[in-house]
Write a protein that binds this DNA or RNA. Structure first.
Lengths: 210, 210
DNA sequence: GTCTATATGGCGATAGAC
DNA sequence: GTCTATCGCCATATAGAC
């Protein structure tokens, strides 16, 4: 029996379980699967290694739990935005602003996801497929919006990838961009990212001639 | 004395040194610093661990050598393209096509660079700074081209990042894109990447109203 | 230069007392 | 459930024969 329920917790997990997950998230996202150690996760969680293995029998099990959680955070409420009944321009604007805010709050998330996914595609692809994301529905809704706005000349998958690229890549490539374009000045880089809300939007609107 | 020079080699390195570098590149790029082992590198090179340490005293030294080499491959001849005297549209077109070809040939390169750079920014930033890339010169030349083409309304750094994002991100995010947009079909994904040469170009040209 | 053998340490994982 | 102690393994790195 679990005599250690945390009544104040929003989920049904015991208190150490929550501390472990929080610690594991921090360590895995910062160092990746190979770079993270169970010892460090235990230290951050304020428990010892043995207890870690008591709750999550293997490193891989703990990792997959974290990865799944991270992936669902990384995928925003795009479905919601796209299927709303706002005009197309508003939809695009909301999506960009929301996503850049999300990325600003979780700058390590995308590179973690993308790197792990590159190194263990087979093992992780099932996890991302069970994320509840429905790409064909998104495509369908987005396509409808484009049709209504009279845009037929640009393929929707490329448009979708263009938008995502321009939002995510600058966060993933922070070290290069910050160093080469802003002399390592973090304030300038952060400002640049915020400015992108406007400039990505402008770019897309002009490209689509809306 | 080095009694093992490889006369046929284009560089000045001994034969085992070249085999080691080739093997290390393959392993490091595929598995990252933490995931790679000296044993595997030695195996791929067809030598033993001890010899590895004879030539490169520490894993980190070998890694930095590979990283530097990888980074200079990852950074294309952008300088050359930008400072040529072709019209702006041609410059943009050449750059996109050349870069996508480069990325198609080396699809693991960008995620390797970006991930290692995220995890060890301080240690690697000096390496990328010594890459010979001159960003302010590129900006300057590119800016001149834009001025001549009568484009003043869009900030150059954002434009530069937009172009790079749309080229690089789809390669970095291959597992997600392939799985979600193309049902895991690699042929379809590869075709998509090739199509991007045209669609990225179109997108930019329209956005800039050239 | 190249090898075998080994030192040394940290890793994931488990045993077993409490 | 939580701890200390420890196992077995594999990592980087070195010693020393040839």
């Amino acid at each position: 029996m679990d005599n250690n329920k945390n009544i104040n917790s929003p989920n049904n997990l015991s208190e150490p379980e929550n501390k472990i997950l929080e610690a594991a998230k921090k360590v895995f996202i910062q160092k990746g699967f190979d770079g993270a150690t169970m010892q460090e996760i235990a230290d951050v969680a304020g428990i010892n290694k043995a207890l870690l293995h008591y709750y999550f029998r293997k490193k891989e099990i703990l990792f997959k739990t974290i990865f799944q959680q991270a992936f669902s955070e990384f995928v925003p409420n795009i479905q919601e935005v796209i299927s709303s009944d706002k005009p197309l321009r508003k939809k695009i604007k909301s999506f960009i602003e929301g996503y850049i805010d999300l990325l600003t709050k979780n700058p390590y998330l995308p590179i973690f996801i993308l790197n792990e996914l590159s190194q263990r595609p087979e093992k992780l692809i099932t996890i991302i497929k069970s994320s509840g994301l429905n790409p064909s529905l998104i495509i369908k809704n987005f396509d409808k919006s484009l049709q209504e706005a009279g845009i037929k000349s640009y393929p929707i998958k490329h448009l979708l990838v263009n938008i995502l690229s321009m939002c995510i890549f600058p966060v993933v490539a922070k070290p290069v961009i910050s160093s080469f374009l802003f002399d390592g000045n973090d304030k300038s880089y952060q400002l640049f990212i915020q400015q992108r809300k406007k400039y990505i939007y402008d770019f897309i609107i002009k490209a689509l001639k809306i």
